[in-house]
Design a protein around this nucleic acid. Structure first.
Lengths: 341, 341
DNA sequence: TTGTAGGCGTTATCAG
DNA sequence: CTGATAACGCCTACAA
C-alpha cells in the first residue's frame, strides 16, 4: 500500500497539487465543485498529510519532550499521567525519557530532545544534578522549557512546585502537636532542592516549638529507598531509643520505617509516630495507615503542560514570554501512623 | 540564534552543500583537507542535522508509539521502563499514550500514531477492547506492530506474553497444597484475554484436584481496583463464610482483600489464605506480606521493543517478517499471606 | 478560480 | 574529489 500524497490526488483528478492543498485547507478561492471532488477522493483514499513534510514546513512537530528521574514511581507516574492527558487534549504528543537520577543521562537526553527539535521540554531534575549548563543551553536556544517538582532555582524558566518547606514544617508540627518531643528526620539526598527544603521545614518547626535541633537525629538517604528507611530506623532505635517521632522525606522511606518498627513490635503511633511525604497509594493500604503530606502529582502535570503551552504559543508568535512559577497547595493527611485507630 | 544548516556551512567555506553533507557523513570521496575544515566549522557552530528534514528524506523518525491502559500502575510502569530503556539504547524515542482502558481512546490513539508516522507501534489493549478493526489497520499499512500482556489472539502480529493460565493454575495449586478446600476467585473484567486465562487456570486447578467448581465463588471486577477487592471480600465472607482461600486477579485487588479481612480481624493465612498476581512492590510491605505470581514487567518491556526493532529492520529492508510470540516465565512468590510468619 | 514556482533542509545520483 | 540537480511532500506568494 503506497502512501497517498497531494500529488497522487491531484493526478487522479487531473488538477494541480496547489488546488488540492487549498481545497483541503478550506481556502476560499476554490470552486465548490473541485473542493467537493477533492474532499471526496481524499476521504476515499484515506489521505492524511505526511507529518514529516508538515514538520519541515511549519518547523514544529506538536511533540514535547519530558525528562523524569523515574517512571516506576507513584508520584512521578501521576505527573506523567497529567502531562500526557493535558498534552493530548491540546494536540501534542509526549516523548518520555528517564534520567534514572543520573545527571549524565539527563544531559544526554536534553541534547537528544533538542536535536529532535521538540516544541518544548519539561524536566524534573535528577538527584545528582548539580550543574546547569545543559539547562542554560535550552534557554539559549529559546526552546520553551518548564521545570517541575525537582527544580533549579537559578534557572530563569517557568516552574511548577509545591512549598516543600512549608509542607514539611506542617508535617513536623503535626507530630509536635501530638506530643512528640524528640523527632528524627530521614532526609532526602544532598543535591535536590526539595530535599533541602523539607529538611529546613523540619528544622524550623523544631525551633518554632523550642525543641533543640540535633543534627544526629538527621539521616541522609542516597536514593530515598525503602531499604534506607528500614536501615536508618534500625540505627535510630539503637542509638536514640527515646525518639518518639520520625518524619521521612518520602512515603517509600516511611514505609521502610514502618516495616522495621512493626517487625520489632514497636507500637505505632503509641511509642513512635511516623509521617511521610507525597501521599502514595501504598500508604492507605499498609498497617498502620500512613500519615503524610498530600502532593498533587496529577495536577502538577496538568499545570506544567499548561505553562509550557503558553510559552510555546508565545514563542510561535514571537511574543515575549515572562517565566512564571506556579505553586500548588499541599495538605496534611492524618492517618493511623500518627493518630492511631 | 538562527539554525545552522548545511547551506550555512557551505557558504562560509565557499564549497557546495553536497560536499559538506558528504564530509559529515564520512563518505570516502572527500579530501582530508575539506573534510577537516567541514568538521571543524560544523563543530564550532554546533551543527546538528534538522531532524524534520532527515525524517522527510529517510521516511523514518526513529520514534515509536506506545499505547498503554494506565501509566499509574506498578506493572505497566515497569514495562514502560523496559521499553524506554531498550529503545533509547537503540536510538529510538518513545511517545506514550494512555488509553485509560477505553477502546474509543485506543482507536483514536492508534490513528494519531499512524498519522504521526511513527516507525512502529506497541500496544497493550484496554479492558474494553472487543473490536479489532484499528489493529488490523496497523497491519494493513504494514507498520511494525507488537502487542504485549493484554493481547488479541486473532491479530497476526508479534506478541510478548506470559502464560496466564499456567501461572494462575500454579497460584491456585499453591493454595490447594496448603490445604484450601473452598477457594474463591476475584477475576478481572470480561474482555481481556488474560483475565479469562487466569480464570481458566483457576478452574483447571480445581478440577485437577477434584474440587467442585462453583460459579458463585467467582466474582468479576469491572476495573480490578482496590475497592473491588475490598467489597467482594465482604460479599464472600457474608455469603460463603467457609471460604478458606482467595485468589485475586491482581495484587491491587488482593490488597483490597487483605484490608477487608484485617479490618474484620479475620486471620490471614490461618482462616483465609490470599494470593494475588503480578508482584507489585506494595505486596512486600503490607501486613501480612502478599503471596503472588511474579510477572516480569521490565523484561516484558525489553522483549517487546526488541521484537518491534526486528520487525522495523525487516520492513526497512523489504524483508519478510514472520510474527513471533515470546512467552516469559513466571514464578510463585510465597509470602505470609499464604505461609504465615 | 487555478496553477506555477520556490523553498523548508537533507540526501542520493550522476556528471564533471 | 567536487558539485549541480532532483527529490522527499507540503505550503504559500504570486501570476495567469
Amino acid at each position: 500500500m503506497k502512501d497517498i500524497t497531494l500529488k497522487e490526488i491531484a493526478q487522479q483528478l487531473g488538477i494541480s497539487i496547489t488546488t488540492v492543498s487549498k481545497a483541503l485547507k478550506n481556502y476560499p478561492d476554490v470552486s465548490e465543485k473541485t473542493r467537493n471532488a477533492v474532499l471526496q477522493l481524499s476521504q476515499s483514499l484515506h489521505y492524511t498529510p505526511n507529518s514529516f513534510a508538515v514538520n519541515l514546513r511549519t518547523k514544529e512537530s506538536k511533540t514535547i519532550g519530558l525528562i523524569i528521574p523515574e517512571v516506576v514511581h507513584h508520584f512521578f507516574s501521576n505527573i506523567i499521567n497529567g502531562i500526557i492527558e493535558e498534552a493530548e487534549k491540546n494536540g501534542y504528543l509526549v516523548i518520555i525519557l528517564q534520567s534514572n537520577e543520573s545527571m549524565e543521562m539527563e544531559i544526554k537526553q536534553v541534547e537528544l530532545l533538542m536535536n529532535k527539535r521538540v516544541d518544548g521540554i519539561l524536566i524534573s531534575l535528577s538527584n545528582e544534578s548539580n550543574n546547569d549548563e545543559h539547562l542554560k543551553e535550552i534557554l539559549r536556544r529559546n526552546i520553551p522549557f518548564v521545570m517541575f517538582d525537582k527544580i533549579n532555582k537559578l534557572i530563569n524558566c517557568s516552574k511548577v512546585i509545591i512549598d516543600d518547606q512549608r509542607a514539611s514544617f506542617a508535617a513536623t508540627q503535626h507530630l509536635i502537636d501530638l506530643g512528640c518531643k524528640k523527632i528524627a528526620h530521614i532526609r532526602g539526598p544532598v543535591n535536590p532542592q526539595n530535599a533541602i527544603d523539607r529538611f529546613l521545614g523540619y528544622k524550623k518547626a523544631l525551633e518554632k516549638n523550642n525543641i533543640v535541633y540535633d543534627s544526629k537525629l538527621v539521616y541522609t538517604c542516597l536514593g530515598a529507598a525503602f531499604e534506607e528507611g528500614y536501615e536508618f530506623t534500625k540505627q535510630i532505635i539503637e542509638n536514640h531509643p527515646d525518639v518518639d517521632g520520625i518524619f521521612a522525606v518520602t512515603d517509600m522511606v516511611a514505609v521502610g520505617v514502618i516495616n522495621y518498627l512493626t517487625e520489632k513490635n514497636i507500637k505505632i503511633p503509641e511509642q513512635i509516630k511516623v509521617i511521610g511525604f507525597s501521599n502514595w497509594f501504598m500508604g492507605q493500604v499498609i498497617t498502620p495507615k500512613l500519615s503524610t503530606v498530600d502532593q498533587p502529582g496529577y495536577e502538577m502535570g496538568i499545570q506544567s503542560f499548561k505553562l509550557l503551552l503558553e510559552e510555546m504559543n508565545s514563542v510561535k508568535n514571537d511574543a515575549k514570554f515572562i517565566p512564571r512559577t506556579v505553586e500548588l497547595p499541599t495538605s496534611i493527611i492524618k492517618r493511623e501512623s500518627t493518630l492511631g485507630k
